[in-house]
Each structure stands twice: as C-alpha cells, then as structure tokens.
Design a protein around this nucleic acid. Structure first.
Length: 225
DNA sequence: TGCCAGGCCGGGT
DNA sequence: ACCCGGCATGGC
C-alpha cells in the first residue's frame, strides 16, 4: 500500500470508529478564533471555562474584547492557562482584525487563502497551527491543520519520521487527498480523537485501536527487525 | 503526585 | 538554521 492509500484508509477507519466529530466546538467564527488562541498547548476543558467567563462578562465580541483592559481580560481567561501571554495574543489579534478588515469576518473570508495565511502569521501569537485552525474552522478555507496529535499518529504508523516539521506534514496530507473543506475539517478532528483515545503518549498502541490494521507490527518490533 | 494538554515567542548558539 | 526556557491552569 502506498502512503497515499494508507492515509485515505486512516481517514476511513477513524471515521467509521469515531463517527463525524462536528468541529469546531464554537458557536460563531469569532468564538472559534478566540478558542484557537486559547487552546494553544492547553486542554480544551480549560478553554471552555475561559470562554464561559468571557460570555458571562459580555466580552465575547471584537469590540468588547478590543477595549477591555489587559488585566481584566487576563483575569477572565485565567482557567485557560498562560493567561498573561494569551491576553496579549488576543489583543494583538484584535488589533490586526480591526485594522485589516474592520473586524469583519465576511471581509476576511473574501480574501484568497495564501495571502490571508501569511497575514495571520504576521500577528504576534498566531503561529502555523493557530493560523490554519482559523482558516479552516472559522473562515472555511481548505487548509490542513497539523497538531501534536497529527504528528504523533502519523509517526506511530511510520508515515513520517521524527524530523518531519509542520509544513512537511501539512503538505503530505494536503497532497495525498482531495483538497476538500469538509474532509480536512473532519480529518483533523479525527486525528485528535485517535490521539486522545487510542494513540496516547502513555499507550502508544493497543489492540483495540481502530487503525491497528494499518501498521501490523509495533515500532519496537520494526526497529528490532 | 507528577504528567499532560489541539503552541508560540524570543534569545542564545 | 536549530535549540531551549518561559509561560500556568485543571484533570486524571
């Protein structure tokens, strides 16, 4: 089986096992963007608390968030961790959002994906994964989101090596299947599901893994062979 | 109890 | 071009 075939199969097996994930868990594109920044290296359950706080404070919109004093914002998002850093990152995004499109999601969506991605990456606090999450899940752009789970699952199944970096993994996934928005959306969410429930750090492999047929022997066994 | 979670930046080699 | 420390809460 070619790696292209194995990637297709990985998607089919994960989808059959876990079902559609219906990502992103956010009510509006703006909320998705805020969540994407808050969830950097952080458990989603903590982000939910932070978002709840913002909602209760009536701050979950571009104008309110932009004018909120930094310490107030930081206090509200405290459960998400790194709250001082993330408060600054939200602020820098909101400043850019205001300047570049008058805080209009529709105007962002009207722009071509490549220049939009570059522009997002110029915002301090928005790196490649966050930019791609925003593009895919808030702006409906067909780009693949790579995260720690994605890399771990692909590594466990020997589809990438240890040194593969973000852009390499992204290119592998985008070039090996149709560039379809719904598929990219679902596939990334399924990587997270697999990484959380089967292919965890502690349990690298288990007999119940829905992807077990992809890689018949363990990595240790492969190394010994 | 220690490890882990849907990264990113800035400074040092 | 890499490598590393810092950033922080909450759940298991």
């Amino acid at each position: 089986m070619t790696s292209r075939d194995r990637i297709h199969r990985m998607f089919d097996l994960a989808l059959r096992h876990f079902g559609p994930q219906h990502w992103w868990p956010g009510e509006t594109p703006f909320e998705v963007i805020v969540g994407a920044i808050l969830t950097q290296n952080t458990a989603w359950t903590n982000v939910e608390k932070a978002i709840r706080n913002l909602k209760q404070a009536g701050m979950l919109d571009a104008a309110s968030l932009r004018k909120a004093p930094l310490p107030v914002l930081a206090a509200a998002i405290r459960p998400a961790g790194y709250f001082n850093v993330k408060a600054r990152r939200l602020k820098s995004f909101l400043e850019w959002f205001h300047e570049t499109c008058g805080s209009s999601i529709a105007r962002l969506k009207a722009r071509p994906i490549e220049s939009l991605r570059e522009d997002l990456l110029s915002v301090s606090g928005i790196g490649r994964e966050t930019a791609d999450s925003i593009l895919l899940y808030a702006l409906d752009k067909p780009t693949f989101v790579v995260d720690a789970y994605t890399a771990r699952v692909l590594r466990r199944h020997a589809l990438i090596d240890e040194s593969a970096d973000y852009d390499e993994i992204k290119a592998l996934l985008e070039d090996s299947q149709p560039r379809d928005l719904a598929r990219f959306n679902e596939f990334h969410a399924l990587f997270v599901a697999v990484g959380k429930y089967c292919c965890t750090k502690r349990i690298p492999r288990c007999d119940a893994c829905p992807l077990r047929s992809l890689t018949p022997i363990t990595l240790e066994e492969a190394a010994e062979a």
